[in-house]
């Protein structure tokens, strides 16, 4: 019953295989099996967004995906956002705008914001707020996060 499954997947552009039990969530696999602890567990039932990743380019809560579902798919985590020795513009703008205080929600917000800009490169404040409503932040009151995303959109 407890046999593990081999899963072949692509994470942050790298093809790899991992072993997991079917009951392990993608979040658990990323964190405990692959050591990618950028995705955070805030609620483990889809209500906070701290575990957000992109699955085949679609924003999802990795706590609500089974690890085995990653077979043959692509996963993008916060660890894959910076490239070529450079922070992603969203990462840079989050720093410049002081859009993080404790930083635990930041990886989820960054991926959610990236997903927003992929769909809508020039969002309004209302559109940013709507898109980010599934990501909870308890420190900032969202003001500086929203400004950072709007500024990053101008930059991209």
């Amino acid at each position: 019953m407890k046999s593990k499954v081999i899963v072949a997947t692509t994470i942050n552009g790298e093809e790899l295989e991992f072993l997991c039990e079917p009951r392990q969530s993608l979040l658990e696999v990323l964190r405990d099996v692959l050591g990618l602890t950028g995705a955070k567990e805030g609620c483990n039932n889809g209500n906070c967004g701290a575990c957000n990743v992109l699955l085949d380019g679609v924003l999802v809560n990795s706590c609500l995906v089974l690890g085995v579902e990653a077979e043959g798919r692509t996963v993008e985590t916060v660890e894959g956002m910076a490239s070529g020795g450079q922070l992603h513009p969203l990462q840079q703008k989050f720093l410049e705008h002081a859009a993080l205080q404790c930083g635990i929600c930041t990886p989820g917000f960054l991926l959610a914001a990236k997903s927003l800009l992929d769909h809508n490169p020039d969002p309004t404040e209302a559109e940013v707020r709507h898109w980010l409503a599934g990501n909870l932040c308890r420190c900032t009151g969202y003001d500086k996060i929203v400004r950072a995303v709007l500024d990053a959109a101008d930059t991209v």
């Binding site: 889809g46 957000n52 679609v58 999802v60 959610a112 599934g134």
Partner: peptide
């Protein structure tokens, strides 16, 4: 239904 990340699934 849920937020954007719920609607993704």
């Amino acid at each position: 239904i849920g937020g954007i990340q719920i609607q993704g699934r």
